[in-house]
Computed example of a mutant assay.
Amino acid sequence: MQEKLDKETFKRKTVSFYRYVIVESPFELRNKLFAAWNELDCLGRIYVAKEGINAQMNVPEHYWEKFVDCIQNNEYLKDIPLKIAVEDDGKSFLKLQVKVRNKIVADGLNDDEFDVTNVGKHLDAREWNRAMDQGALVVDMRNHYESEVGKFEGAITPQAEKFADELPEVLEILKGKEEEKVLLYCTGGVRCEKTSAFLKHHGFKDVNQLYGGIIDYKRQVDQIQEENRFKGVNFVFDNRLGERISNDVISHCHQCGKPCDTHVNCSNVRCNLLFIQCEECASSYEGTCSDACKEYVMASPERKQELDNIHQYRPVKRYFKSRC
């Protein structure tokens, strides 16, 4: 599939969108969307559930109008906000996957216990900046490896590795601050939507969320010439792994400590650890995360079999936690 993308003579546009809406038949919607988007040669990862849809995908530019028509003609997607990628090489996804899931974002919550539609107020970029100036609590609703490379200045950044663990962590961090103004942000807005309803259910009075997430914030500040308060890179869950929002580099190479914000996966496919690596270390370690993994990728087939047997290359966690 990568070879096919490399040979394409047209450009693709990476887009993301979500909506919490009651879907009567997720499998029926899934099949309908796959058929329509496959015909338009779209690629991406789309989750459909009874609670809604969450999509990240790329669309051939020459089919963009047909794609928008498809969105507008669907009862669940009509007028849904589309967030266009900030940086895009057209190779964000290699295949089209439309999957039915229990939830569009795994959150570990029993949604029957609270009103998931009672969400916070959506703030545009200008309103968001003003609220920051007034001392509101800013909370990053992304995972630790996302906030490590980019965040709003002064934001609370939980150390959870998945959203389901982050919700109780944030609730504990904000305990006693139920009367204060809270600002939530994430990549495109979908995690904040659920978090805002969760916090309001737990007694928080003034819950707000960044409209369109970091992706749309960048578009807005550029359009209205507002100050960009986000520093660094916006981590994205596709082959790009990140898009630059500002020139600030706020993180470090996990191997040498040099300023760097480039996420990679260990080139040892049996490891695949996600970590930050500078160009020099990528060359020195052959794109791997450790001496053990370097040995593995450089080893003979016989030696690889030995290493397979002792599991020497396996990481303790899927994501590296920086000590820098």
Rank of each mutant, 00 (worst) to 15 (best):
residue 256 C to V: 04
residue 4 K to W: 12
residue 134 Q to V: 04
residue 72 Q to D: 08
residue 186 C to W: 04
residue 282 A to E: 11
residue 18 Y to R: 01
residue 83 K to C: 12
residue 275 F to N: 08
residue 74 N to K: 09
residue 317 K to S: 15
residue 128 W to N: 11
residue 271 C to R: 11
residue 141 M to F: 05
residue 145 Y to R: 09
residue 87 E to R: 05
residue 37 W to H: 07
residue 121 K to T: 13
residue 290 S to T: 06
residue 162 K to M: 13
residue 130 R to M: 15
residue 183 L to S: 07
residue 174 L to R: 09
residue 99 K to G: 09
residue 41 D to I: 07
residue 71 I to V: 14
residue 275 F to R: 01
residue 299 A to D: 09
residue 146 E to I: 03
residue 201 H to A: 15
residue 162 K to P: 02
residue 52 G to Y: 01
residue 39 E to W: 03
residue 11 K to L: 10
residue 226 E to T: 06
residue 182 V to P: 00
residue 57 M to K: 05
residue 108 G to Y: 00
residue 251 S to W: 01
residue 125 A to E: 09
residue 221 V to E: 09
residue 288 T to S: 14
residue 112 D to E: 13
residue 126 R to N: 13
residue 16 S to R: 07
residue 97 Q to D: 09
residue 19 R to P: 04
residue 250 I to D: 05
residue 154 G to I: 14
residue 315 P to F: 13
residue 92 S to Y: 05
residue 151 K to T: 03
residue 231 K to G: 02
residue 223 Q to E: 13
residue 113 E to M: 13
residue 98 V to L: 07
residue 110 N to L: 13
residue 35 A to T: 07
residue 127 E to K: 13
residue 217 Y to E: 08
residue 79 D to G: 07
residue 199 L to S: 06
residue 2 Q to A: 15
residue 17 F to H: 00
residue 82 L to Q: 12
residue 322 S to C: 12
residue 137 L to G: 00
residue 70 C to Y: 03
residue 167 L to K: 03
residue 209 Q to D: 01
residue 15 V to P: 07
residue 283 S to Q: 15
residue 92 S to F: 06
residue 215 I to G: 01
residue 281 C to A: 15
residue 33 L to G: 07
residue 34 F to P: 04
residue 253 C to R: 05
residue 47 Y to H: 08
residue 37 W to P: 06
residue 141 M to Y: 02
residue 169 E to Y: 00
residue 157 T to V: 14
residue 244 R to Y: 04
residue 59 V to W: 10
residue 121 K to P: 01
residue 306 E to P: 06
residue 171 L to E: 15
residue 93 F to I: 10
residue 105 V to Y: 04
residue 308 D to V: 07
residue 254 H to F: 03
residue 314 R to C: 08
residue 47 Y to Q: 04
residue 54 N to C: 03
residue 4 K to R: 10
residue 8 E to L: 14
residue 281 C to Y: 02
residue 135 G to N: 06
residue 54 N to F: 01
residue 23 V to K: 00
residue 47 Y to K: 06
residue 205 K to A: 12
residue 14 T to H: 12
residue 289 C to K: 00
residue 308 D to N: 15
residue 118 N to T: 02
residue 159 Q to H: 13
residue 292 A to N: 12
residue 92 S to T: 09
residue 91 K to G: 01
residue 174 L to K: 02
residue 96 L to N: 05
residue 195 T to E: 08
residue 79 D to C: 10
residue 18 Y to P: 08
residue 49 A to G: 10
residue 122 H to V: 03
residue 126 R to P: 04
residue 276 I to Q: 01
residue 204 F to V: 02
residue 297 V to I: 09
residue 5 L to A: 13
residue 72 Q to K: 10
residue 97 Q to W: 04
residue 315 P to M: 12
residue 162 K to E: 09
residue 42 C to K: 03
residue 69 D to Y: 00
residue 122 H to Y: 15
residue 74 N to D: 14
residue 144 H to P: 00
residue 307 L to V: 00
residue 143 N to A: 12
residue 62 H to R: 15
residue 88 D to E: 04
residue 255 Q to M: 13
residue 254 H to K: 09
residue 316 V to H: 11
residue 124 D to R: 04
